[in-house]
Nucleic acid binder design. Structure first.
Lengths: 238, 238
DNA sequence: TCAAAAAATGACGATGTGTCAATAATGGAA
DNA sequence: TTCCATTATTGACACATCGTCATTTTTTGA
């Protein structure tokens, strides 16, 4: 049926529009800035109609988080399969570049990721959407974990008996998420002596990978150049 | 005047009671769970009286954050001056142990630190309390930074020209904050292969410090034992 | 004992969430 | 085309919450 197609399409479009408005409100003024009434007003629909798309406010936030994670996933996938990589550690550097680009290019997405991790919204959300989120997170993990396992298989790095490939990913993840959280939430880092946090983050990540003996080591190869290259060549579109 | 003393004391006690109730609500159900009405009811005072102590909800949260930071600061100070340290890196390990113990012992405090970093509460809060927060943060930085500078002075580690002592602290801070945020917000880390995140965190931190060539290196000295020692000997009180 | 100062109260306006009975629009059968 | 069943939309409503402030109660000190 043609009409069913149109209806379905309109529904999708409205849903996208809701999420777009919600994203703006959320990044402007946080959890409280996101108002169902204001979404309804700006959509020129009544509140009841909005509630037919999303059971509640938390579902909207979780939907935004899923969009964010999907975008991150997409960028990680591109980075992981970057054809310019000449070793497993290059691919890891490409992931780092993708993570940087993700925050720079979609700061709102990153903001949602942060909100979801701190605000207690989980009780009110649907099992289905929580599952999507969980799956996305797992797939992100798989991609980066895959690079580590490739490196292990090629003998590019070694792990102590007590550590798994996932622990390496956890390290990168922690370092990256922590650093960006601090950067975005702490004004005047300069004042306390952190002049270039992103450069410091890169450095610290590389030192950690060096710790796993992931060859070529940081002093053997300029991974900063690699990351810059990936950022411009692969994710350079403004 | 005796009466002035009593009044002042009562005011302090009430304030402490408010914060205590608020802390419970906040950690139970997040930002929304903290209700001024419910605080008033449970205090057996009217709402207006609560508002004589704190201008608004955000001020309460910021006050809680200051308590948390002060506690962290106190523990870091104890760790930094630990008499059992036999080298600068031992003292750094002691800071790591303090950070671990802080989260274990005061999970609510850590929860507040997270909320403050993500919820946009800053606009409504007073300059004064923001300043306290900023100062605490700076002093935490100073303590850990001091250990790094001591290490540099003793020739225990070296820095590349482009990195400052604060960048090392930033690395430890990011790694620790990121790891604990992920751990507390992501159920079923086991499912994605991270079996012992805290052990992984320790390992990753040590690898990072090794990257700065902070001697004795991780494979030369068992810093896990050092941290366990600090945790039981210095912060062992249950 | 009493009046001025200080403290406490809670009704109130504003804003927000989520519901649901009532209304409008739509689609297809006769 | 007409008409009715189904679906979509509406917005008033009940309820919760924040922060205010005129009013009431308590305290203080002369």
């Amino acid at each position: 049926m043609v009409t069913i197609g149109r209806k379905e399409r309109e529904k999708q479009e409205r849903e996208a529009k809701i999420l777009q408005l919600a994203r703006g409100m959320l990044s402007d003024a946080g959890y409280l800035g996101l108002s169902m009434d204001r979404i309804a007003t700006q959509m020129e629909y009544s509140k009841g109609t909005i509630y037919q798309h999303f059971q509640n406010k938390e579902e909207i936030i979780l939907a935004l988080a899923n969009e964010a994670l999907e975008k991150r996933l997409e960028m990680f996938e591109i980075a992981a399969t970057w054809s310019g990589a000449s070793c497993s550690r290059d691919r890891m550097a490409a992931i780092g570049a993708a993570a940087e680009r993700f925050v720079e290019k979609y700061p709102q997405h990153f903001g949602v990721e942060q909100i979801v991790r701190s605000a207690s919204i989980w009780e009110k959300t649907s099992e289905e959407r929580r599952h999507i989120m969980h799956t996305c997170e797992g797939r992100c993990m798989q991609i980066v974990g895959g690079i580590v396992r490739d490196g292990l298989a090629h003998g590019d790095l070694e792990l102590p008996a007590s550590r798994s490939a996932e622990d390496v990913v956890f390290g990168m993840w922690s370092l990256n998420f922590g650093a960006y959280t601090i950067v975005t939430s702490s004004e005047s880092l300069e004042e306390i002596g952190i002049l270039n946090p992103i450069a410091a983050l890169r450095h610290n990540q590389n030192l950690m990978l060096d710790g796993y003996n992931w060859r070529p080591l940081y002093n053997e190869k300029n991974y900063d150049a690699t990351m810059d290259q990936v950022k411009t060549e692969v994710f350079g579109d403004e």
